[in-house]
């Protein structure tokens, strides 16, 4: 018993040390800078500057609005896709090919993929050429520099997280439960609504939380697709660190975004928990 405990401690030491050195320490530095002035005094002025200014709340609202819409769309499109992969595809190699198709883009840098969307969604890009070719619009539609443009890029980049987590939950469901429901004379729609959906809710919630957290903090995609005409919170943080060099205010912005995101994610987690209990 004692020996196994030592082994456990030794095994845990490396990841814990890594976590402390590369995650906790930098985080502590950011939090500390956000609470100090240039000469080292303690202050809440940087937070006051953020929280008592309507502008920052406006930007937060834009940020969370885009993140929520991204999450909703990812679920809406990702769920049927996961269903198709798990329930409809019978041929194993095809399923494997589909999963690879979904996962492979994750290996490519966000920057490259966002640049790709800049080209596709541009004034003379493929999307506008197609729309104009089909006569659906006379003038090119503006995607870049709009929330729609950012949304398209974000949904594309974050969708795999929903497909994989929902697919995983779906695959684990014992289909006997659905058969039992059918035996008891319940139609397929009600079976889906009262049996299948609650069972894959935890997977959907964890996928949604991942997507939401990544969308709230995304920098590259909104920065490139907004064309500098829409500001999300991460862009304010980047500006302070990269061009204004005010690490105190930048740190306070980072901590504000982190805390608000954690609050929202916790709330979502609660909902997921309730769903699981209900199931």
């Amino acid at each position: 018993m004692a020996a196994s405990r030592t082994t456990l401690a030794l095994l845990l030491f490396a990841p814990l040390a890594f976590f402390a050195a590369f995650f906790l320490a930098p985080m502590a530095v950011v939090a500390l800078t956000s609470l100090t002035t240039d000469d080292g005094g303690l202050t809440f002025a940087h937070y006051a500057r953020i929280l008592f200014d309507q502008y920052h709340w406006d930007v937060l609202w834009v940020t969370f609005r885009i993140a929520l819409a991204t999450t909703a769309l990812c679920l809406l499109i990702g769920f049927p896709l996961a269903w198709y992969l798990v329930r409809i595809v019978r041929w194993r190699s095809w399923r494997r090919a589909c999963v690879i198709l979904i996962v492979v883009p994750l290996f490519t840098s966000n920057i490259v993929r966002s640049f790709g969307w800049m080209v596709l969604l541009g004034r003379t890009g493929l999307v506008n050429q197609g729309l104009m070719g089909m006569g659906m619009t006379e003038r090119p539609i503006r995607f870049l520099g709009t929330e729609t443009g950012i949304l398209i890029g974000m949904v594309y980049i974050l969708m795999p997280f929903v497909v994989l987590s929902v697919g995983n939950a779906l695959a684990k469901i014992d289909t006997a439960l659905e058969d039992a429901s059918a035996d008891l004379g319940v139609g397929p729609a009600r079976t889906f609504w009262f049996v299948t959906l609650p069972l894959c809710l935890p997977g959907a919630v964890s996928g949604a939380i991942m997507v939401f957290a990544l969308a709230v903090s995304a920098y590259v995609t909104p920065a490139l697709l907004s064309g500098g005409q829409i500001t999300v919170f991460s862009m304010l943080i980047f500006q302070q660190y990269s061009s204004v060099f005010d690490f105190h205010y930048g740190g306070a912005l980072s901590v504000t975004l982190l805390v608000l995101t954690l609050v929202l994610v916790t709330l979502a987690g609660r909902i997921g928990e309730r769903g699981r209990r209900a199931a």
Binding site: R123, G145, G227
Partner: peptide
């Protein structure tokens, strides 16, 4: 009336390249 305000030199190159 901008197409974009570029934040990196690469984004500017990309915009000129794609005629954005």
């Amino acid at each position: 009336k901008p197409a974009l305000f570029f934040d990196s030199s690469g984004a500017a190159s990309n915009a000129f390249q794609s005629s954005e």
